[in-house]
Amino acid sequence: MIFLAAGLGSLLLQGALSRYLPPAAVPDFALLVVVGAGLHFTAARGMLVSTAIGFAADWLSGALLGQQALLRLVIFGVTRAANRRLHLRRPLPLGIFAAAATAANGTLLLGLSHLFQSGGVGVTPEWMLTLAVQALANAACAPWLLRRLAHWAAPRASFSRRVLKLVATGRGA
């Protein structure tokens, strides 16, 4: 629930910050929350949360409904797979992974836009600059944001785990 709320809050914050900063310089907090879900959630729960955040992003942006949801789902899956090999809880690998995920997200969005919507242009220097700036912004923010998220989510997780344990042992009744 905290990740979902954080994802929705991130989208609103991004929308507000974009009024004062160049859109590319505003970190994609919602994408980072999905990466965080990939590190801390079970597969089923994480997929649902990531897709919900993606749909919310579609609702609040000019994207087709489902476009960003699809990519968030894919990024969640890739994060889980990468975490098994890359120790993504460490700041440096996490920063690098966040940058790569941002680049992949931007490229796939462009691809999907071409596939589903006619017109538009391909890869331009401006587009590449936007991608690079946002990848850097996300890489810089990822370790801090995900540490905060893990911190907020941890007490509740342990509390619910404790409740489950009590119920399972019959001592909660």
Partner: peptide, 22 residues
């Protein structure tokens, strides 16, 4: 197969949603 099932359902839901919205 629960995880794969959920993944597949969500994937299809996203694709269908995009097509309808388009």
């Amino acid at each position: 197969i629960r995880v794969y099932l959920i993944f597949g359902v969500l994937l299809v839901a996203c694709a269908v949603s995009m097509l309808i919205d388009r």
